[in-house]
Amino acid sequence: MKRLAIILALLIAAPPAIACETFTTGDITVEQVWSRASIGTQRPGVLYMMIRNEGAADDALISISTPIAEKPMLHETTVEDGIASMPHAMRVPVPAGQTVELRPGGYHGMLMGLTEALEEGASFPVTLTLEEAGDLTVLAEVLSMRAEAPECDAAQ
């Protein structure tokens, strides 16, 4: 009976979303990698994720590359005295033992020069370059334009 309930629960649950997958290299784990659907390719896209450093040494995300954008960059949105701007971020520190979020209103990947429109439900690869851990290729899921975060149950 209990087994049946589990099977039913599995059947009812939506298929695991790509945004809820985790990617690991060494002490670095990356999850909840997502982007927003775009209208065409004219406007820049965006990239968010969570990076966890389980090691004893500090690391940092220093660049991103993806076939979906000609000019991907790291940005940091800052709101000072209520005024928002988003300067280029040379590096996103990922201190030892900590989780750093690229999320709306903070650090984000800025995907300029989209090579194709980002359709909701699609996914694309992104290679992250970390100062210490080196390269890690992850998959980003394209969520709706109205999304604010992926819905993953009990992440971490």
Partner: peptide, 8 residues
């Protein structure tokens, strides 16, 4: 053209 603050 603002992909972060405005859509949010």
């Amino acid at each position: 053209n603002c992909p972060d603050v405005c859509p949010t």
